[in-house]
Nucleic acid binder design. Structure first.
Lengths: 337, 337
DNA sequence: TTTGCTTGTTTAAACGTTTAAGCAGATCTT
DNA sequence: AAGATCTGCTTAAACGTTTAAACAAGCAAA
């Protein structure tokens, strides 16, 4: 790499002090003569000067960088949020550094360390299971951060999310309204709040619909072995003949894996099995019976998260803010009566 | 944010010089007494010292940061590569800053400026149309970079990609072999090499298959108005009755949009229309007639790109290297005879 | 006993910025 | 004419590291 032009080079080139150059280039002084200012700007242009943001950061203590931690950036749910966060951050003059925690406590800690060592000004985090302590540590260090999508009951923090209970309840209620009597659910095998609230919503909707929940209807798959466990679980429920007549998938990734089995077993949707999933996926449009799903506004999540994160950087806020974004049921073919 | 512990704090705390602390913490000296070393390490632990990578970067001139520029991080093709790049970069002790250029020359330049101002050590770029000059400028500044997916005929640079001509040729050849006689193609309305080579492959396969190419078979959509233009183009070809009996989509995003029309018009695949797409998509598995597609190894692309990029940082290489990764046809239902 | 090596530590400069404070010289007040 | 104020610029320190060079003390060799 070629040597970069610094403010020093410009100063030397013109025989002035670096301070003067800095003042001009940042419009930080009204006491510089017009001719000198022009000369400096000219030289900066000619020499193709680019400020070294690293040096500026060291001096200012601010990096204008936002850290984004998600489970897996290759998951469309998160990559779409990433895109929105990126765009929104740019509006504020911020750049984004991202990382995937792979749903692992250790990776999450390592990632956090990396981002903090790089002095990000704030963090946006979709936390992994069992990382409460990491989040609490952030609070103690007074590092501005915002949780998205997931959260912990015993951590009061800035958070942007949907009402998971309500979303699940509404979905399952709709399955019942359209004739479902035996309704299954595929959830992650995790203790994370967002999932357990979706399960509560599911169970309560059943109860309120006058349906007695059966243990076997609720199947669970781990993040690490999603494919196999989802396949096995679904097969258990669908073979030799479907035990359930309606199904609720707790996330789009679960739906993708689960529906693979529905396709393979040639189950008729919605006649034999009605289906609703949380979140969107392109694949849902391509299924012969386009899926009914609960749509959360990723746009809102991303923008609000950035707003909260950077708002926190600006003024040291005290009260954590919780933003509940909209989620609405998009009814399509997979739940037609 | 709380005040961070610096090497100075540790030094003051123990009544020694910062140099000594630095030597110990970096294992850079074999002349430090064992007791002192232990004391310093102990203090660092107790005070919860975290090195300030910004300061270190300023001093060393290296940021251990990799810039990744793609068209759109929310496109699964790129977000999957991003994940692989992220993982691979971590192996090398690098962090990734990403950005989407939105297929725009201006945004691309702005992004490049941002990343360079942040002193990234190297760049991995899927360049937008008409950004040759930006790429050439990188070369002149001797900034290590690697192109992925897309490339320019008049820029000799490090590049990781597939053989687009061959991939398209093979795909279209297969359409012909399985009975196609009138084969359409949906491509981006761009001058980018990777697309024009896919078009050449398509045309040559037609010719070699004894089919005379018809202008109307090739439809194009712009990046900016993909949805509408793809829809219109496809309708023109499919209504009132399909003009073509086989179809080749130049990318997965084009396929997603194009197939929406196939679904809407209730075209029978593969009977009325056989289909092949470049690249993968989850949605392809959910289509009633799972799509035949050309699979490129994103794993290879990501890993090779990081290898080239960081290899270049290490030794000032002279000759640009071009890595052609594998692409193979995955035959499924959408092209059954 | 000087000389020279070894050991353990410090000094100081450097990386590229920003910015408070200082300093001349010119111009304005009275 | 003496001070005050304004104008245009410089000095110097600071941010948190790294690292070559210097230094002091102890020890071995001559």
């Amino acid at each position: 790499m070629e040597k970069k032009i610094s403010i020093k080079d410009i100063a030397r080139h013109l025989g002035v002090s670096t301070a003067l150059v800095s003042y001009v280039l940042n419009n930080k002084s009204d006491r510089v003569s017009v001719e000198m200012a022009e000369k400096i700007r000219q030289a900066a242009r000619e020499l193709n000067y680019r400020p070294n943001l690293i040096a500026r950061s060291l001096q200012s203590g601010k990096t204008n960088t936002l850290g984004l931690i998600v489970a897996d950036i290759s998951n469309p749910f998160f990559s779409q949020i990433a895109r929105i966060v990126e765009d929104e951050a740019k509006q504020w003059g911020y750049t984004v550094i991202f990382g995937s925690n792979g749903e692992s406590v250790e990776k999450s800690q390592a990632l956090l360390d990396t981002l903090l060592n790089r002095q990000v000004d704030a963090l946006i985090i979709a936390p992994a299971e069992y990382t409460e302590d990491q989040i609490k540590a952030l609070q103690e260090k007074r590092i501005p951060f915002v949780l998205i999508d997931r959260y912990f009951s015993d951590v009061r923090a800035n958070c942007v999310r949907i009402d998971n209970y309500k979303a699940a309840y509404t979905a399952v209620e709709h399955l019942i309204k359209t004739g479902g009597r035996r309704i299954g659910m595929l959830a992650y095998d995790t203790s994370m709040q967002h999932i357990s609230e979706r399960i509560s919503g599911y169970k309560d909707a059943l109860k309120d619909g006058g349906i007695v929940f059966q243990e076997q209807w609720l199947i669970r798959a781990s993040y690490q072995h999603l494919e196999e466990e989802a396949a096995l679980g679904m097969q258990g429920l669908l073979l030799p003949v479907p035990v359930v007549d309606g199904f609720f998938f707790a996330t789009n990734s679960l739906a993708i894996q689960g529906i693979r089995q529905v396709i393979q077993q040639k189950i008729k949707v919605p006649d034999e099995l009605a289906i609703i999933s949380m979140d969107e996926a392109e694949a849902f449009d391509f299924f012969y019976s386009p899926l009914t799903f609960v749509k959360q506004s990723l746009e809102d999540i991303g923008k609000q998260a950035v707003r909260l994160a950077l708002g926190n950087v600006a003024q040291q806020r005290v009260m954590p803010e919780e933003v509940i974004v909209d989620a609405k049921l998009v009814i399509r073919e997979s739940t037609k009566k």
